[in-house]
Design a protein around this nucleic acid. Structure first.
Length: 644
RNA sequence: GGGCCCGUAGCUCAGCCAGGAUAGAGCGCCGGCCUCCUAAGCCGGCGGUCGGGGGUUCAAAUCCCCCCGGGCCCGCCA
C-alpha cells in the first residue's frame, strides 16, 4: 500500500484527475487548492471552480466530471456546484466502511509516501551551536524546527541525513581556549568546582574571558562608559561562578598588554592544525558537545553526523575551494583583501539563468556587498569555510537538496554562499541549497547574550518544566509510581517546549514566555498528549476491536462523521506539510482533530454503548484518532502518551 | 540610505504564496458542567474600521503602489 493515502485521498485524486482530463484544472492544482468548506451545508471539501472555468458552463463541467468519476469506479463522493465552487460531499457509510475494512487488513495511518524517483537525498543541517556556551531557548527553536523537518521529510519517503556543524575554527572558540589556558585546567575540573554541567562551565569561562578581554580593550581606549558596564558584568559573573577561578582569568587578562593578540594567535595556530592548540580546542569542544547531546536527547533530537569545521580546513577541501574561487575570475581586491565579486557573479552567471535566479532568491534592486574571503592575517572567515562545507554536505550525502536551518539574521551570508557556489560552476548546489530561516526567540524584558553569559539555558527550562509537569501528573494520579510519573513528566515537559516552538510560523518573532509554555491548560503539546491518552484509555477499556461487527452507518451522527472525515485527511495534510516545509500546518491540524475528538468524547461514550455495531464502529474511530495523533505527534517530536 | 520580514479580537496567532462562500482558533474575561470512557476536558457569552490611504477586479485580509509602526541585515563577528 505504498503511497496510499486512504479513502479520502483516493477520492480527491480521482476528482482531480477528472478535472484534468476535462481540461479545467490540473490534478496538482486541484489537490493544492481543494480545501474544507467554510460551512457544512456546502459539503466537506470545496474547490473554486469559477477561477478555472473560463466561461464554460459550470453545470456542464459538473456533469462531465461526475461521469468521469463514475467511470473510474470511484463511489462515495457526491459533487455539486454552489456559487461557483465545486463542492464534494463524502458518504460516511461508504468511506467509513472502507476505513474499517482497511483497518481489518492491517492498514496503518501514515504520511503519503513519494514514489521511487521522487524520493530524494536530503540533508538537514540544524542547531550547529558554537561549543562555547550551553544551549539556550534560541537553539531549541532551531533544533525543534530542524528535527521536525527531518522527521517529516523522512516520513514522506525521502532519505534524510541530519548534520550538526561544529564551529571550532573561529574567534569564539579561541577565546574560550585562551580562558582555559590561563586557568591551566580542564572543563571537567571547572564543572566540578562550579557543580554544573560541563557545557555550562565552558559557557561561564567563555563569558568571563570574553568580557575581561573587552574590558582590557576598553581600558586601552579609555572608554569610560563601557568600562563601568563591563566591570559590573565581570562582578556578576564572578559571583555566579567561582570567584577564585574568575580572579585568575581576570588577573591574567589584565596583566597583558594586548590580550586580543593572544586570542588571534590561538586562532591562527589552530587553523594551521598546530599543537598544543589542536588537542586543546578539540578536547574543550568535545566536552561542550557532550553536554549538548545530553540536552538534545531530552528533546528527542539526534544527529547522524557531527561535522567539524576544522576538518574542512585540514582536509584541504577549503584550500581546493579557494583555489577554484580564485581561478573563477570572480575574485577581486576589496579594502586590501581578497573578496568574491558578487556583483560580477550576478551579472555573468545568475542573470542569464532564470531558474537559478528564481531559486537563489535574489532580491530585486539589491546590491549584494562583496564577500570578503580572508582576514588580513590570512585566516579565513566563517562564511568562507561555509562555502566549502556546503559542497561537502552535497558530496558526502550525495544530496539532492541541502536544508540549512539558520536564523534569519544570516540571510545575507547564506545568499553570498549560494553566489559563491554559482561562481565556481556549482549551479545545481546553489539552486538546491535552501536557507530555512527562522526568527529569533526573545525573552520578555531582556536580550540574550552568550558573550556576557546572559541567557536562559535549555537545561534550566527543561528542569523547570519537568518539575511543573511532575506536580501535575502526581496531582492527577496519586497512585502512580515515582519513576513512571517522572518519566511521564519528562515527556510532557519536552513536548510542551517542542510544540510551542514549532506551532507558530518560523518567521514569527517569538517572545518566549516560560509561564505560558509551562501552563499545560492551553492549546498545546500536552493538550494533544492528553487527548492521545484519553483515546488510549478508551481502547484499553474497550479491548480488541471486532471490526466485523462495526456498523459504518452509525457514522452519520454529525460529530462522528466530522471526526472520520477530518482524521482521514491526515495522510494528505502531513504530506503537504512536509513538501512545503511547514510543520506549523501539521500542528494546527492536530489541534483541530483533538478539538473535535474532545467535543465528541464529552457526550458520546464508547464503552457504555449498548449496540455492538455502533460500539465497534466508535472504537474504530477512536483508534483512527489515536493512530493519527500518534503519527503526527511523533513527526513533531512530541511523545504520544498512553497515560498522563 | 538600501534590502528582507512582521503588523488580523485585550494578548498569542491561523488564513495572504495559488483573490471568491457570514474573517477563524487559543488564551484572558463573564456564566455553567465531574454518582457516567482521565475536568491537562466540555458548553454558552462578550470581543475585529484585517496598521492607514489609493489602485486593479464582478469580487481584496489576500494582488499592485504609497505611507506609518516594529524587527533583522548591509562587519577582515558567528
Amino acid at each position: 500500500m505504498e503511497g496510499y493515502g486512504g479513502p479520502l485521498a483516493r477520492r480527491l485524486e480521482a476528482v482531480g484527475s477528472c478535472l484534468e482530463s476535462e481540461g479545467v484544472a490540473s490534478r496538482e492544482v486541484f489537490l493544492r487548492l481543494v480545501d474544507k468548506t467554510p460551512r457544512e451545508e456546502y459539503g466537506d471539501y470545496g474547490f473554486p471552480l469559477m477561477r478555472f472555468a473560463g466561461g464554460r458552463d459550470l453545470e456542464g463541467v459538473l456533469s462531465k466530471v461526475k461521469d468521469c468519476v463514475e467511470a473510474l469506479g470511484v463511489n462515495g463522493v457526491s459533487l455539486s456546484i454552489h456559487r461557483g465552487f465545486l463542492n464534494l460531499k463524502f458518504n460516511e457509510d461508504i468511506i467509513g466502511g472502507e476505513a474499517i475494512s482497511l483497518y481489518e487488513k492491517g492498514w496503518r495511518v501514515d504520511v503519503i509516501k513519494v514514489g521511487g524517483a521522487e524520493a530524494k537525498n536530503i540533508v538537514v543541517e540544524h542547531t550547529s551551536a558554537n561549543p562555547v556556551h550551553p544551549l539556550h531557548i534560541g537553539h531549541a527553536r532551531n533544533a525543534s524546527l530542524g528535527d521536525t523537518l527531518a522527521r517529516m521529510l523522512e516520513a514522506r519517503g525521502h532519505r534524510v541525513v541530519r548534520r550538526y556543524y561544529v564551529n571550532d575554527v573561529g574567534r569564539q572558540m579561541a577565546v574560550v581556549v585562551y580562558g582555559f589556558k590561563m586557568l591551566n585546567t580542564t572543563p571537567r575540573d571547572v564543572a566540578a568546582t562550579l557543580k554544573t554541567k560541563v557545557d555550562h562551565a565552558i559557557g561561564w569561562v567563555y563569558a568571563l574571558t570574553h568580557t575581561a578581554v573587552d574590558f582590557a580593550l576598553a581600558r586601552k581606549n579609555m572608554i569610560e562608559e563601557d568600562l563601568n558596564l563591563l566591570a559590573s558584568t565581570l562582578a556578576r559573573l564572578r559571583e555566579r561562578g567561582s570567584p577564585e577561578l574568575a580572579d585568575k582569568i581576570i588577573g591574567a587578562v589584565l596583566s597583558l598588554e594586548d590580550p586580543e593578540a593572544e586570542v588571534s594567535k590561538i586562532m591562527l595556530r589552530y587553523e594551521m592544525g598546530l599543537e598544543p592548540e589542536k588537542s586543546l580546542v578539540r578536547s574543550i569542544a568535545e566536552a561542550a558537545l557532550e553536554g549538548f547531546r545530553e540536552t538534545l536527547e531530552k528533546l528527542g533530537v539526534e544527529f547522524d553526523y557531527w561535522d567539524w569545521e576544522s576538518d574542512i580546513v585540514w582536509s584541504g577541501l577549503l584550500a581546493g575551494v579557494l583555489n577554484e574561487l580564485s581561478r573563477s575570475g570572480f575574485t577581486k581586491v576589496h579594502k586590501g583583501t581578497v573578496a568574491l565579486d558578487t556583483a560580477a557573479v550576478i551579472r555573468d552567471v545568475v542573470e542569464g539563468d532564470s531558474v537559478l535566479r528564481e531559486s537563489i532568491k535574489l532580491p530585486r534592486g539589491f546590491e549584494v556587498p562583496p564577500m570578503v574571503l580572508y582576514r588580513s592575517d590570512g585566516t579565513t572567515l566563517y562564511w568562507t569555510r561555509d562555502i566549502a562545507y556546503s559542497i561537502y554536505k552535497f558530496q558526502h550525502s550525495k544530496a539532492d537538496r541541502v536544508i540549512n536551518v539558520v536564523a534569519v539574521e544570516q540571510k545575507l551570508p547564506q545568499l553570498q554562499i549560494r553566489l559563491a557556489l554559482a561562481a565556481i560552476g556549482r549551479v545545481r548546489e546553489a539552486a538546491n541549497m535552501i536557507h530555512y530561516e527562522y526568527e529569533m526567540v526573545n525573552l520578555p524584558g531582556r536580550a540574550m547574550s552568550g558573550r556576557r553569559g546572559e541567557y536562559v539555558t535549555l537545561d534550566e527550562l527543561l528542569e523547570e518544566a519537568e518539575a511543573r509537569a511532575f506536580y501535575e501528573v502526581k496531582a492527577r494520579n496519586p497512585d502512580l509510581e515515582e519513576e513512571t510519573a517522572r518519566n511521564i513528566a519528562r515527556k510532557v515537559a519536552a513536548g510542551a517546549i517542542r510544540f510551542s516552538l514549532v506551532q507558530p510560523g518560523a518567521l514569527k518573532p517569538l517572545t518566549f514566555d516560560t509561564a505560558k509554555v509551562l501552563n499545560f491548560e492551553e492549546n498545546t503539546g500536552p493538550y494533544l498528549q492528553y487527548t492521545h491518552a484519553r483515546a488510549s484509555n478508551i481502547l484499553e477499556k474497550h479491548g480488541p476491536i471486532k471490526y466485523e461487527l462495526a456498523n459504518p452507518k452509525t457514522y452519520s451522527e454529525p460529530l462522528r462523521r466530522n471526526i472520520l472525515i477530518t482524521a482521514l485527511a491526515y495522510p494528505m495534510i502531513s504530506a503537504k506539510a512536509a513538501d512545503e516545509l511547514r510543520p506549523e500546518d501539521l500542528a494546527a491540524y492536530l489541534l483541530k482533530l483533538a478539538d473535535i475528538f474532545n467535543k465528541w468524547y464529552q457526550k458520546d461514550s464508547v464503552i457504555h454503548e449498548k449496540d455492538p455495531g455502533a460500539r465497534e464502529a466508535k472504537a474504530t474511530l477512536v483508534k483512527l484518532v489515536k493512530d493519527t495523533l500518534s503519527s503526527g505527534l511523533t513527526l513533531l517530536g512530541v511523545t504520544p502518551l498512553e497515560r498522563m
